[in-house]
């Protein structure tokens, strides 16, 4: 069933007509030419499609495009609107990828992790649930990034790439 919507992707309003069955991920990739977010599984199991929706990381494969009207969608490309994001630079510095397919999802997810830590959100490995500050230790980064799989297993380099930005942003001791 066709519906007219306007999606706001990486700062630009993009009107389009979509079938209600279209995911946000497919609308971006197949209709708007915004191919930064990737499709790995289409079932919420890999994180390759991660985008920020009004600043919160979500799996865009499980979001119906019609439900994202009026919300700000940010992909890894969008994070580089004013030059590379610090995460882009530390991923390069730490060689935090091999094929790169999972990387835009890793980057947007890491941006989400940093924002959640800045708000003091705990995780499953946080010892003190009521602590008001989060310290993104390696164990915390691994747990919080567990929704992003990397087929090339670049995890050993992704953790320090995220950790470096966490130190710069004051959420890691």
């Amino acid at each position: 069933m066709d519906t007219q919507i306007t999606l706001r992707v990486d700062g630009a309003d993009r009107p389009l007509t979509v079938d209600t069955r279209t995911s946000l991920l497919d609308a971006m990739r197949e209709r708007l030419g915004a191919t930064s977010a990737k499709k790995g599984c289409d079932h919420g199991q890999c994180g390759a499609c991660t985008v920020l929706l009004d600043g919160r990381r979500v799996n865009s494969c499980l979001v119906l495009a019609v439900t994202a009207e009026g919300q700000e969608v940010t992909t890894s490309d969008g994070l580089a609107a004013d030059g590379p994001h610090r995460l882009h630079e530390t991923f390069v510095d730490h060689d935090a990828y091999q094929c790169g397919y999972c990387t835009p999802g890793q980057i947007t997810s890491a941006a989400g992790v940093l924002a959640e830590a800045a708000q003091g959100w705990p995780s499953a490995v946080t010892e003190d649930l009521v602590a008001d500050r989060t310290d993104l230790t390696d164990a915390e980064i691994r747990e919080r990034m567990s929704g992003n799989l990397c087929r090339c297993a670049a995890y050993a380099n992704i953790v320090p790439a995220v950790a470096q930005v966490a130190v710069e942003q004051g959420v890691r001791a």
Binding site: G44, G47, T50, L53, R56, R57, V58, N59, L62, V63, S109, G112, V113, E116, P122, S123, A124, T126, L129, V130, R144, M145, S146, G147, N148
Partner: peptide, 22 residues
């Protein structure tokens, strides 16, 4: 987190950060 630690922990043990946001 203060009153019902078991509930916070159960939620945090589920799915992923992305899924829990949605």
């Amino acid at each position: 987190r203060e009153r019902y630690p078991l509930l916070a922990q159960a939620l945090l043990a589920g799915a992923s950060g992305q899924l829990r946001n949605r």
